[in-house]
Design a protein around this nucleic acid. Sequence first.
DNA 1: TACAATTTGTGCGTATGTATA
DNA 2: ATATACATACGCACAAATTGT
Lengths: 241, 241
Amino acid sequence: MDAPKFPTFRPLYQQIKDLLLERIASGEWSPGTYIPSEAALAASYDVSVGTLRKALNELVAENVVIRQQGKGTVVATHDTDRVLFRFFNLWRHDGERGLPVSRPLGRKLRKATADEARDLGLEPGAKVIHISRVRDLEGVPTLVEQITLEAARFPGLEKDPEVLPNTLYHLYQQRFGQTVAHADESLVAVAASAQDAEHLDVQPGDPVLQIRRIARDYQGTPIERRISTVTTRHYGYFNQL
Amino acid sequence: MDAPKFPTFRPLYQQIKDLLLERIASGEWSPGTYIPSEAALAASYDVSVGTLRKALNELVAENVVIRQQGKGTVVATHDTDRVLFRFFNLWRHDGERGLPVSRPLGRKLRKATADEARDLGLEPGAKVIHISRVRDLEGVPTLVEQITLEAARFPGLEKDPEVLPNTLYHLYQQRFGQTVAHADESLVAVAASAQDAEHLDVQPGDPVLQIRRIARDYQGTPIERRISTVTTRHYGYFNQL
DNA sequence: TACAATTTGTGCGTATGTATA
DNA sequence: ATATACATACGCACAAATTGT
């Protein structure tokens, strides 16, 4: 009946979780690093092992760390299939899935458009890097991606890796210390533009799926804006509820 | 290096979880029921409270039960907003969301098509109930739904509730004891058919989003097949990764 | 192959705090 | 206030997986 009380205290395990996440986000424990054992961490924070486990298990649920019996606890990287497929939801209509092969279309450093600045939380006119590419699935052009990144976070990316790898998120993480931890996607159906139609081997005006993604780091700050235009002849966007 | 071993044992808490889920799926604890307390259940299964908590917490994570401090543990129902929005992912482009209002188009008992039988796991030619309706969002027709149900699971639904409620899943649960626990969705972009175009106030051939959903019960058995055709002028399908 | 050390996973028990009726 | 139920926190013992000796 009362108004909801402001939480007067924060459970100890959540405080520990915040501390652990901070050490990960700060780069003290970079992706791929094995962090100290439960026992060692519990002792260092002067809490029980159970409390520390509860904190770690929440980080597991959020895909921040991976625990393996006998080995230890490692900060999640973007090179495992598990993490990879988390950000790739296109399945063939018969239920199979294949990894895409990318063909570059262009890459340049320029000023952000109004939309890009809004989505990335930047000042209007801030410098961004724009990447566009086509991705083939089993040899069939299926996807056109328009990617925008804040230039300050990815210094030199407009030129430097002469050939971009297929999985960009791994590159972001390894080369620039930028880890994509979450992403929001919004899907709409649109008519294919002339350019997209050509790349995707469809007719201009044909219906295509447009996926607008904003990828964020551990703290929720936007890192990448990605607009994918997909022909859904052979593939569909799959989601589990 | 070795081939992955077949799990020689199943943790106790998972066995308990299975037993609890079975009592829920069987209807012994129907949705809305408060199940016995941790202490009582732990005693009845002769396990520790901690083990029983771990089993229950997994059911919480799977949205099967809801726990409330001081009250108890209740089997989840389809009448709370939380569960409701889990199966409704359309957001307005400005970030708001409104609940839809439904207008019936038709309802009949007939034989399943080949596609319907496959999706629902039925014999070819089995009896199904087909429902079609238009849903308005803030007064704007936005969605056409084609729903197919196995007739045997929903006896009389082709006629009985003269007026269908807005939220069908609650009806399935209350009237027929059929609880939608999970769902798979596959999204594609298609050209609007003449009929859909008329209902959605778009031109035939205009791009629309098609959502093919198969809803399943606790055991994963298909309950409902739903094809939603959506105009994405004002709304988009939102997903968090 | 055998064994030991390390690390996480499972399971038990207890005490105390907080929310609800 | 009291009783009930879940939430938090502590501690311990042993099992299972991994790695190195």
